[in-house]
């Protein structure tokens, strides 16, 4: 055993761009390699949107802050979002016309696999090792693994009793350990999405335990906490929270146009928060989901 020379490491530390300079700046360059990043949000906040976008940005060459590799998308929430995927392919192609001129289809560099159960996921990850080892032969130069979502696998299969909970947390640590060792050996960035659960009574039980920079996570006016509990929180390196809040715009407009008095322009305000990360302080920024992807809003 020999210690690593830390001076040599910064050269290897890679970040995968999110395809938007504002979001990249928030995250200190993007999604870090050799590490597990969790995206947690209620449904419809943009977890899958961001995850799909990463599948493409990972293919960008190093000079465009990508990882110059292909990506693996393991999904447990059915069906696979084909239409949105195709939409993104088109916008991605049109934004990088030279890279993907004619012969190179970004779809060829995205691998997908469905996972029905947690054990299934573990098997896939274990079998992945031999393929990653011979990346040259298998042409499986995977640099990004997305699991969408981890929560779906665990929320149905397990009962709320001591035995199942123990089996569940043991599986968490196994999956996380395999992911981390792949991430370390092959320089892979791992993104995992997670769902939220409502917090009914803050004082009851241990689910109200504060984890990370925010006192509480609020989305759509409700207080929530990430699914899968404390032991899963120990398995990831960074946690990002996407929130959605309905806000009423245009109160100033109202004064200007009397015709429209009473009309309120409702819109969804989405925000990305850093809940915890070893390399980032707390920060947040607003983002929008457009036809061509997810983008940060500069204020």
């Amino acid at each position: 055993m020999t210690p690593e020379n830390l001076l040599l490491r910064p050269a290897y530390r890679q970040f995968c761009t999110l395809g938007c300079p504002i979001l990249d700046a928030l995250l200190g360059g993007g999604i870090p390699c050799n590490s597990i990043t969790e995206l947690v949000a209620e449904s419809g906040c943009g977890k899958t949107q961001l995850a799909l976008q990463l599948l493409f940005t990972a293919q960008l060459p190093r000079r465009l802050k990508g990882l110059a590799g292909s990506s693996l998308y393991l999904y447990s929430e059915f069906p696979f979002p084909y239409r949105r995927f195709d939409q993104l392919v088109e916008s991605f192609r049109s934004s990088h016309p030279i890279l993907f001129a004619c012969c190179r289809d970004p779809r060829d560099y995205v691998f997908t696999r469905d996972c029905q159960t947690a054990d299934d996921l573990l098997d896939v990850l274990l079998m992945l090792e031999s393929r990653l080892k011979n990346a040259k032969e298998t042409k499986l130069n995977i640099k990004l693994i997305v699991i969408d979502s981890i929560a779906a696998l665990f929320r149905s299969e397990f009962e709320n009793n001591a035995g199942d909970l123990k089996r569940r947390s043991s599986l968490f640590f196994k999956i996380s350990s395999v992911l981390k060792s792949h991430a370390k050996r092959f320089g892979i960035a791992v993104v995992v999405t997670n769902q939220v659960v409502d917090l009914i009574d803050v004082n009851e039980g241990a689910s109200g335990v504060r984890i990370g920079n925010l006192e509480g996570l609020y989305t759509s006016g409700r207080r929530v906490c990430p699914a899968l509990g404390l032991s899963w929180a120990n398995c990831i390196n960074s946690r990002l929270f996407l929130s959605r809040q309905e806000v009423i715009d245009g109160e100033e407009n109202e004064l200007q146009n009397d015709n429209y008095s009473g009309f309120m322009n409702r819109r969804k305000r989405r925000e990305l928060h850093v809940v915890f990360a070893p390399h980032l302080p707390y920060s947040s920024c607003e983002f929008v989901i457009r036809k061509d992807g997810v983008f940060g809003v500069d204020r």
Binding site: L6, I36, K180, A183, K184, N237, H279
Partner: peptide, 10 residues
């Protein structure tokens, strides 16, 4: 755990 970040140490 893989949480050590050289950037942060720097």
């Amino acid at each position: 755990e893989g949480s050590f970040m050289v950037e942060r140490a720097l």
